[in-house]
Write a protein that binds this DNA or RNA. Structure first.
Lengths: 247, 247
DNA sequence: AACCTATATTGTCTAAAAGACAATATCTAG
DNA sequence: CTAGATATTGTCTTTTAGACAATATAGGTT
């Protein structure tokens, strides 16, 4: 039973460690990829897991996630969008002492080649379908965390401009549309997508210049950027509908 | 600097305690109310705070939130809807040792009278506007947690049927509409609301019976209930729009 | 009973948005 | 110049949202 005078006397409780784990998402070769590390130590030696680690004494949770992302990939906070996903703290989630992990999700475009760190043999971006097909199994409850993160991303891009974080700082409308098509697994009408984009000039703006996109010709596409670099903020009109009748 | 072999050796880190705090929301007298406790011990003696406490060794985070809700209010998990909100873990968030708190939000209808517990002088439901107007200040970062919870609720009812959790098990359409009107602070058209409701029969269903609602007459309203008692699941069509032009 | 008020429910009209798809514009390659 | 590729614009139709009128059914009053 809980002692009477303990609301803020944590010493009466068994030790708990707090970690952060980050689901880093990027698009490679037309498919969603997730950053995984191969563990270099027990438990789960040589098992695949999400990058993460324990929080430091002097940093908050967001800072810990940013630090872990940087340590594992070299990606700084400016290049990625980080958001808190949720916390996972089943007493039985691992063989070690109790660890409560605060999970984050991150979107980044064209990440540098990840490298193994102090606690990881190696790190690489894995095609999501390899994990979903069971080809690659994750340690601990990281599969659950991953599923939650993907669902969060699919849902977030519905009413924010965050999909642009999968693209470079400037991007064409087609590039942005491809992000939606990949994440939602459906084709979107280029004309309607464009119309919806132009209805959101407060969030996405045409910068005036153009880029020829294909070596085999085609009209050059105009370039766009996020009006608000953070990509937060609710769109006035969705760019596309996630749940409409198939074409 | 972080030791090399420490991914799951938490003993090398300074102690952290993990708590849960719950934002319990209910509608009283036509306004949103939040459950607060008056602290019975230091720090923040006699300060107002969200109900919460440290997690126990053998329970997961959800169970800890349910337990705290029950301890502080007598409300069981069947009567309320609980969801995880997010974690708050600034090193400077309190004068005590480091505490990372996992915040939950809960919706309940017609809660029993709350009572003070072992660590609280008393507990009561407070009108949200009293907190927002600054009449009542909260300890720690609980004001931030509260704001996030309210925003989450306002957003959640937009695309789920969770607003029904503010009503009794069976409710009239007008009662449900009032929840939206209170949470969003705007009037909704009764006719259009009804039309939208009937387009979501997978989530909300007419049970056939009726209830006379006013002592001063009026046509009896038909009674409805949640088809899925959990209230989760995305509505096919929103019942109303949060961001439309004022009438 | 006849009528008034209150509330719920249904219906109607219009404007806006979504979806399908056709037409046009501008590039590369030959 | 022509064909092929890609981007952009336009048009038509269907669906949905918002405003609001009309009807239904209760209690209370004369």
């Amino acid at each position: 039973m809980k002692p009477a005078s303990s609301r803020y006397d944590p010493h009466t409780y068994p030790p708990v460690a707090v970690a952060v784990d980050v689901v880093v998402q990027t698009i490679l070769e037309g498919a969603l990829h997730i950053l995984l590390i191969e563990r270099g130590e027990a438990p789960f030696l040589s098992g695949w897991a999400l990058p993460g680690g324990f929080i430091h004494e002097d940093e908050n949770l967001d800072q810990a996630a940013v630090r872990e992302l940087e340590e594992k990939t070299g990606i700084g906070a400016d290049d990625a969008h980080l958001g808190q996903l949720g916390s996972y703290g089943d007493p039985s989630r691992g063989p070690h002492m109790r660890v409560v992990t605060v999970a984050y999700w991150a979107i980044c475009a064209h990440p540098p080649e990840p490298h193994g760190g102090t606690d990881a043999k190696r790190a690489k971006f894995v095609d999501l379908s390899e994990i979903e097909d069971g080809v690659l199994k994750l340690a601990l409850d990281h599969r659950t965390i991953l599923d939650d993160a993907i669902e969060r991303t699919r849902s977030k891009i519905e009413y924010t401009a965050l999909a642009a974080k999968f693209c470079q700082a400037t991007f064409t409308i087609t590039e942005l549309r491809r992000v939606y098509e990949i994440l939602w697994g459906k084709r979107l009408d280029p004309g309607n997508f464009q119309r919806n984009l132009r209805a959101n000039q407060a969030f996405l703006s045409d910068i005036g210049s153009q880029r020829t996109v294909s070596p085999s010709g085609g009209r050059p596409a105009s370039l766009w950027r996020l009006a608000d670099p953070t990509g937060k903020g609710r769109l006035e009109t969705p760019l596309a509908s996630r749940t409409s009748a198939p074409q």
